[in-house]
Each structure stands twice: as structure tokens, then as C-alpha cells.
Design a binder for these strands. Structure first.
Length: 156
DNA sequence: GCCAACGTTGGC
DNA sequence: GCCAACGTTGGC
């Protein structure tokens, strides 16, 4: 059984439409240790991802992606020109990791944070936790299925 | 643009 | 190791 995750992005930074265009992308730039540990230790090829837009109108889940490579050393940590450059990172012992994610679908109707809040079955989702800032976070199987189901239902 | 929540930094 | 200051996130 593949695990389920949620990955956050701001649409003006990298949107689900960008992912559809690119087909796949390396999810670089995660610079939080808790999130890093998930990417390094937990994410695996075949896992499924809710693609979430923050600072969006509305903020919410906009589609699906899947993990096609896991535990890749994030190349931006070694690139002095990158915003995500980390001078302390070593090539033989990378600090930061990135998954390669591949486009699956764009929801016909996005599931907004408000939709999620209103749904009793989703009340414990990490993304609803006040002050939750993890840019990649675990999602329960049931939660993943439910969000998908809601999007199908909402789009008629 | 506001602001609460949280992570990181750095002086001590 | 404490903790204040600061920066960032992200809903609203």
C-alpha cells in the first residue's frame, strides 16, 4: 500500500498547471528539518500526493501527483546561485532531499480549505492544524480518498 | 496588508 | 542552554 502525502506550493511559485505542463518536477527547496526527515526517510516511489495551493484563491487541494523518485539529493543546496543554496551541505552527505513528483490530475473542482473544514471526516487533517507550516505532510489513506471523492462529487 | 504561529539565530 | 529578536508562513 502506497502512502499518502500533501505537498504545499504557492500558485505563483509553482502551480499544478506548471506541473501538468512539465509532466514531472523535482520538488526542491524544502528547508525545514521536520519536512526534510519525511522526504529523506518516509517518501517512497509510488506514493500519492495531494497537491495543495497556499496563498491561493481559494487555498486548497487542486489535484493529484505521484512520487516517481524518492530521496534525491536536492541539487539546489549545492548551487551558490540558488535561493536555496546551503553552504554547509556536503555532496557526499547531503542535508536536503527532494522527491520527483509526476502529474496525475487537476481536480475539476478544487477542494478548498473551507470545504475541508466543513467535513467532519477531515477535521484532524494536519493542514487544518492552527499554525501548521509543514510544506510536506502525511495524509491518512481515508483522508486522501475522501478529498478525491469530494472533488468528484463537487464537479458533478 | 494584518497578524498569529512557529522556526531559526545569536548573544549571553 | 535560555530566550528575545527576527524572519517566514499562510489564512484571512
Amino acid at each position: 500500500m502506497s502512502r499518502k502525502w500533501l505537498a504545499k506550493s504557492e500558485p505563483n511559485n509553482y502551480s499544478i498547471v506548471d506541473l501538468r505542463r512539465d509532466k514531472k518536477t523535482l520538488w526542491t527547496g524544502v528547508r525545514n528539518y521536520q519536512a526534510r526527515n519525511l522526504l529523506r526517510d518516509e517518501w517512497a516511489k509510488g506514493d500519492e500526493v495531494l497537491f495543495y495551493h497556499s496563498n491561493a484563491k481559494p487555498s486548497g487541494v487542486y489535484g493529484l501527483a505521484k512520487v516517481t523518485k524518492a530521496k534525491v539529493a536536492d541539487p539546489t543546496q549545492f548551487d551558490p546561485k540558488s535561493d536555496y543554496y546551503d553552504p554547509k551541505a556536503k555532496k557526499d552527505k547531503p542535508t536536503w532531499f527532494a522527491p520527483e513528483i509526476t502529474f496525475v490530475s487537476i481536480f475539476k473542482a478544487p477542494i478548498s480549505i473551507e470545504d475541508i473544514k466543513k467535513d467532519a471526516a477531515l477535521k484532524n487533517m494536519e493542514v487544518l492544524r492552527k499554525g501548521s507550516r509543514l510544506s510536506v505532510q502525511p495524509v491518512k489513506d481515508m483522508e486522501y480518498k475522501r478529498v478525491f471523492m469530494m472533488s468528484e462529487k463537487k464537479s458533478g
